[in-house]
Amino acid sequence: MATPIMADRVRVKTLVPPGHIRTPWYLRGKIGVIERPLGEFGNPEQQAYGRIGDRKPLYRVRFTMAEVWGTRAERPEDTLDAEIYGHWLEEI
């Protein structure tokens, strides 16, 4: 199961590693809340190259549209949920 110590509020790290990643660019640096922990899954950054992925905790993180798009948001309080691996999140 997922490590239960992740804070409620998190920021998506602004990493730019080479290779396959599954953290969308448009969410980097954005602050959201953990909607639910999802358990542990093989790290796709390794699996994409035929390796066995280390088990990494995965979370559903909820962002407001205001946080993601700023003043361009259609409706600030609408939300966007995405699955982000724990190693891409920092507690705030």
């Binding site: 599954r22 953290t23 969308p24 309080e77 609408d78 939300t79 949920d81 995405a82 699955e83 982000i84």
Partner: peptide, 9 residues
């Protein structure tokens, strides 16, 4: 309220 779900993983 609209909730969008991006299936990223």
């Amino acid at each position: 309220t609209v909730r969008v779900h991006d299936s990223t993983a």
